[in-house]
Every structure is written in C-alpha cells, then in structure tokens.
Computed example of a mutant assay.
Amino acid sequence: MEIINLGSSEGLPPLDWDPIVAKLDAKSAPPVGAINARTTWLATINDDGSAHVTAVGALWVDGRFWFQTGNDTRKGRNLARDPRCSIAISVRDADVVVEGDAVRMTEPEALTRISKAWADGGWPAKPDPSGSGITAPFNAPSQGPPPWNVYRLQPRSATVVSSAEPGGLTRFRF
C-alpha cells in the first residue's frame, strides 16, 4: 500500500489505514447530532461524464463496501456502462472516501453472506431464487422490483480526513 500524506504542507502527520478499517469494522458512527451524520454516498459516472451522487445502504463486510441497486436505476445503468465509482462515509472523527470499481456479485455464497449481513442489520434481504441478486419484502421505491443486483467495491484508493487531534489528510493506494 502506498501512503501519501496530503496534509504534510500543514505539518499534519500521515494517517494509518488500520484504525480506519477498525472503525469501519465496528460500524463506528459520528456522535449523535454531529455535523457528519451517518449517510453513505455512492458516486457513479453518467453517460455524459458528469457525476451522479446518491445515498445508498452500503455495508462494510470483509474489508469491502457492498451495495445493491435495481437494473433500471441511474446508478445501475451507470455501473453497467462504467464500473468506476466511489463511496463516501463518515466514521467517528474521520471522513472516508473509497474509490474503485463496482464488481457485480452473483456467486451464491457471496449473496448469502451479504444478505445475512443486511438481515442482521434489520433489512430482511435474502438471495433471489434466480441467482441473479437479492430480494426482500421492501426496498426504496426507486430501486424498482427485485431481484436487485449486488455490487462489491474493489478499491483502488481511499482518502481519509481526520478531525481528531492532531488531524490529518491521507490518501492510500491499494
């Protein structure tokens, strides 16, 4: 992993990736009432090259972000054309942006594992019998009908801004 200290000109130390992963693993959220609330944002690329950013119910499982969407959503169409995307989230004392490629997952074991993670979090997802994705009794209306495609973000880099003393701004290339 390459570590680039983007805050060196301000005298900030480089951050370590392992504590960020520990916060993601622990589902560490900003304190209640914090200005960086617990919303996960997905950015994809529209066909004209502009950015499309939307809130998404992503999960951090096995050291990667996972998310789902319908075939006919804008993000689904964007990812079918160009898998490059990024996910942004705030954890306690830091903001994290992970950039990479969305890889559609259809392996039964992966769909079972991530469905269970969503179900354990309160959304009763399960693998769709067709084997193409997941299903649940409900989802955001904008997702369209099930089955919904499941994606894992294969990271290329991450940028972390720490608000904890002494602060820091670091890019990690994987």
Rank of each mutant, 00 (worst) to 15 (best):
M1D: 08
E2F: 13
E2M: 05
E2H: 06
L6N: 05
S8E: 15
G11E: 06
P13V: 12
L15G: 01
D16Y: 01
I20F: 01
I20C: 07
V21P: 14
K23E: 12
L24K: 01
A26E: 08
K27V: 08
V32G: 00
A34E: 05
I35Y: 03
I35S: 08
N36W: 13
N36H: 05
A37I: 08
A37S: 13
W41Y: 08
A43G: 09
A43K: 11
I45W: 01
G49R: 02
A51V: 14
A51Q: 14
H52S: 12
V53D: 10
A55R: 15
G57E: 10
L59E: 01
W60Q: 00
W60I: 00
V61L: 07
R64G: 10
R64S: 07
F65R: 04
Q68L: 12
G70R: 05
N71D: 14
R74Q: 08
G76Y: 05
G76P: 02
R77Y: 07
N78I: 00
D82M: 09
P83E: 05
C85E: 07
I87K: 02
I87F: 01
S90P: 01
D93Y: 08
A94K: 00
V97H: 03
V98H: 01
V98P: 01
A102L: 03
V103Q: 12
R104K: 13
R104F: 05
E107M: 11
E109L: 02
E109I: 06
L111F: 07
R113S: 12
S115F: 00
G121W: 01
G121D: 06
G121H: 07
G122Q: 10
G122M: 14
W123T: 03
P127Y: 00
G131T: 14
G131Q: 02
S132D: 15
I134M: 02
F138P: 03
N139L: 02
P141S: 08
G144L: 15
P145V: 06
P147M: 11
W148D: 04
N149Q: 15
V150Y: 02
V150N: 01
R152P: 05
P155W: 15
A158L: 07
V161C: 10
A164P: 06
G167D: 10
G167Q: 04
T170R: 04
R171I: 13
R171C: 08
R173V: 09
F174T: 10
